[in-house]
Amino acid sequence: MTSPDYRAVFLEELCRIAPDIDPETVGDNDHIQDDLELDSMDILNLVTALSERLGIDIPEKDYPAISTVKSAADYLSRQGA
């Protein structure tokens, strides 16, 4: 998978966890907590969904790495390589 593929997967799972978020309005550098208002339970659900879908383990210490769409795509690309 390429970085754009991971970006698409991340955005898709993000919008499944938070169905009231319109993916068209999410910017690459939007912070999932500060800008998109996900709380810690939402983030855990997002990590669970990404882990199940991609088979990539995201330990708690790495949560900051998925705090924006761009950083998450980069992180997932590295982990999935």
Partner: peptide, 13 residues
């Protein structure tokens, strides 16, 4: 939580 799959992790809350 170390080594736990995400679905088994517990939050401080």
């Amino acid at each position: 939580n170390a080594g736990c799959p995400p679905e088994d992790r517990i939050l401080l809350g």
